[in-house]
Design a protein around this nucleic acid. Sequence first.
DNA 1: GCGTAACCGTGAATCGTTTCATCATTGTCG
DNA 2: CGACAATGATGAAACGATTCACGGTTACGC
Lengths: 337, 337
Amino acid sequence: MAVSVREVAQRAGVSVGTVSNVLNRPEQVKAATVERVREAIAELGYVPNAAARQLRAGQSTTLALVVLDVSNPFFTDVARGAEARAEEAGLTVTLANSDESSDRERKHLEQFETQRVAGVLLVPTADAGDAVARMREHGIPVVLVDRGTPDATVASVAVDDVAGGRMAAAHLLESGRRRLAFVGGPRGIHQVADRFEGAAQAVEAVDGASLTRVETDALTLEEGMRVGAAVLKMVRAGEVDAVFAANDLLAIGVQQALLSGADPVAIPCDVALVGYDDISFAAAAVVPISSVRQPRRQIGSTAVDLLLAERDKADGAAREHVLFQPELVVRASTRTP
Amino acid sequence: MAVSVREVAQRAGVSVGTVSNVLNRPEQVKAATVERVREAIAELGYVPNAAARQLRAGQSTTLALVVLDVSNPFFTDVARGAEARAEEAGLTVTLANSDESSDRERKHLEQFETQRVAGVLLVPTADAGDAVARMREHGIPVVLVDRGTPDATVASVAVDDVAGGRMAAAHLLESGRRRLAFVGGPRGIHQVADRFEGAAQAVEAVDGASLTRVETDALTLEEGMRVGAAVLKMVRAGEVDAVFAANDLLAIGVQQALLSGADPVAIPCDVALVGYDDISFAAAAVVPISSVRQPRRQIGSTAVDLLLAERDKADGAAREHVLFQPELVVRASTRTP
DNA sequence: GCGTAACCGTGAATCGTTTCATCATTGTCG
DNA sequence: CGACAATGATGAAACGATTCACGGTTACGC
């Protein structure tokens, strides 16, 4: 069934070693021989067996990227950045989805460990510590993505979410808003916690400004629409004049809830709205949503860079921590009327 | 560095064969021995080497799913359905993205072939024929997804896109519209062609109804917004009173273009709008968009089922072709005022 | 014509796991 | 007590590619 080097060698009248050489260092083989072997390969439809190759090599040329949610455009963009950079280095990226469950995350990591992947790019769930330590012990390089740790033993690339939160809130405060609401959750997710923290800092610095917290169960469009109803009431009651959502999916959901009722409130007149991530849907919303932009593809490509650096690093050596600064993109949803 | 069965065997004072038996058929090994081996495994932190295992087994327990666009929620949902079903069968799914390029598609397929994957679920690009034939020749089962072929040699699971297109257009016609526009492209994509075909059939059946075609370069939000400007002019000019978009991303983009100008037209009063796929963003749009729903997860799970069936099928045996019927979900964007 | 170096090819060993024929041990029964 | 099963454990072969020390040719200069 399967064609192996042996058959190719026989057909071309050379040894298996030579076939391997043709495949891997053709410059060391006489042109005529290369030709003959190539022909045999084509005639037999030979396809190298990656498992055998990898067994010999000791590790694969695959990188794993584990994200919290494949449906979130933010992560697919990070993945694209990683893929592009990995391809340049001759590596392949496989994408896995933890769905924010540390259980699924652990399963994927174990799976990847058996595959002896060249490294793991991990957007960690709340309690990924043990799993990461284990990887490291077994000699698999790990880079944490979208999570800045002060931990010197693991490299990381992230965006300063506290700064991002501060930025978003400050922007709302500067345009005269005082009664802010933060929409996001669950609290366990550090991105959410950091963005809230930043917003809180900005609010504290301004006299008479307040920050109400509206909790969600997930960072999805649906959750945004659900809590949007509550936000709508608060706006009507005059308790809130600006909303900062922990990500764009939530922001879009909240906007729908605010606009789609029989008697909608006006954005930005009655209430301003800021999101986070700057996914393409944000710019395309009815009232285009101001958002905090993260260099998504760059996050992915940098993560791969760190991973490559990791490979030739002594065990005790300090790890690099790259922290990108986010950028506020102002759109109609916060433009002062 | 790497711990192998050999070391585990030595530590536990048994042979390598026994370690393997503990791993794969523990019921054939005395309880006390199992215990001892398990301890050794834990102490040494042994992790089986998937490459070696696979080399021996001859093929992997991984399924490949190649989609046209990972960022499209439709495909991520199909993927989830496939993953769930595959997990039940003890298989893993890896996701790859062709970005509608048959070149990237080919590369991925070659890659998967070297990996000797257990099978490939393929959402094919326009000219995937050769690549598929090649896979089949090499004994790798293939199931085409989202593409109904009359081809008896390849199994497929798809949704009746012609019926879906007919359904969408008929719905618009029934609610009194006569000047329809079809937004979609490029023509090469068969889903687009089929949906248009269905719409054309419905329009032909009604006296005085017309169908204008508005071409796009891709099925994305951005393209929708771009051509939306043209659609807006046509609506203003009274040339169009209903739009059928080839997918929801386009529909959402078109809606933004129609609503966000200084002097927006009214949906559904001035123009009705139908999309395709029923992604969650469709229901969450400002004016919730009517859409043709496909059983996404079921498509994925059925594809896996067909693949499993494929494995124990004679080469000449006929392949199954599952064709799901889509379902129209009516929302505000087409409700008669 | 000979020595040498450069160039090509060879083939056996190796990677880690599974499988399977075979051996060893224990227990059972007549 | 001996024959026979049943049960556990063994160890060598095999999977397919790569590597590397080594052997055979060729070409060249003297």
